[in-house]
Simulated scan of single mutants.
Amino acid sequence: MRLKFFFKRIVYKIPVVSDYFKIREYHPAGLTFLRFCKFRFFKLNKTIYWPCDKDCVVTGAANITIGKNCSIGSRGCYIQGVGKLIFGDYVRVAMNVGIMSGNHDILDHSKHIKKITFIGDYSWIGMNSIILPGVNLGPRTVVAAGSVVTKSFPDGFCVLAGNPAKIVKEIDRSHFIPPCNEYEYYGYVAVNKFHKFHKKHLMSN
């Protein structure tokens, strides 16, 4: 009884312990207690502030912004922030997905053409898909596995498939139920702490 009291009243209120148990409520990709502790206490570069699998490649992290409760670090993904890459809230990205915000100049491949790539709230990007630089996907856009998205679909609420991807199905907005978790985080960072974290570590965003 005393041990249970000690845990609930004292240990659970230690920030790293309390935050971890809350984060587990939405099960973001690749989150473990050891990774969480590594991020909080040992990782000097905190521009990648969300869980990423060891096989996920992230470049230009200072140009990448993620929304609340995203899962974008699955195995084999290539998340590229040469330009500016913005993820809305509750975005899900499956394995082996490439999302880019810049490309090489076709006349001089030593130069990059920077663009803004935007993935809207509640979007779901299927396995082996590619999102090319400058694409703007509206809210609740579902990209079918293996698709190559070459142009924008800013209205969202649709299913895209193919190469190049096109709309194969409209999603009824009136029947869509947006996900909502009791605890909301920007990666590893609680919503109420994110402004301070952003100011300290992500000034370039």
Rank of each mutant, 00 (worst) to 15 (best):
M1I: 04
F5G: 02
F6S: 13
F6C: 14
I10C: 15
I10V: 15
K13E: 04
I14K: 12
V16A: 11
D19P: 10
Y20N: 05
F21Q: 01
E25H: 13
Y26R: 07
L34Q: 11
L34H: 05
L34V: 03
R35D: 13
F39Y: 12
F41D: 13
F41W: 12
L44I: 14
L44G: 06
I48M: 04
Y49K: 06
W50D: 02
W50V: 06
D53V: 01
K54H: 09
D55S: 14
D55L: 12
V58D: 02
T59C: 09
A61L: 08
G73K: 06
S74K: 08
I79V: 13
F87N: 04
F87K: 02
G88A: 05
D89R: 01
Y90V: 11
A94M: 10
N96P: 04
V97Q: 00
G98P: 02
G98S: 15
G102S: 07
G102T: 10
G102K: 05
H104E: 08
H104V: 05
D105T: 06
I106H: 08
L107N: 14
D108R: 07
H109G: 00
I113G: 05
K114S: 06
K115V: 00
I116W: 00
G120A: 08
G120K: 01
D121W: 01
Y122M: 09
Y122R: 03
S123I: 00
S123F: 00
W124A: 02
S129H: 03
I131K: 02
I131R: 00
L137W: 03
P139V: 00
T141N: 07
V142I: 15
V143F: 01
V143H: 04
A144R: 10
V148Y: 01
T150G: 00
K151A: 10
S152H: 08
S152P: 06
P154I: 01
G156M: 11
F157P: 03
G162N: 10
N163V: 12
I167R: 04
V168G: 03
V168C: 10
E170Y: 12
I171Q: 12
D172I: 09
S174W: 10
H175P: 00
N181Q: 10
E182F: 07
Y185G: 09
Y185A: 09
Y186N: 06
A190Y: 11
N192T: 07
H195Y: 04
H195F: 07
K196S: 11
H198M: 14
H198L: 13
K199S: 14
K200L: 14
H201L: 08
M203H: 11
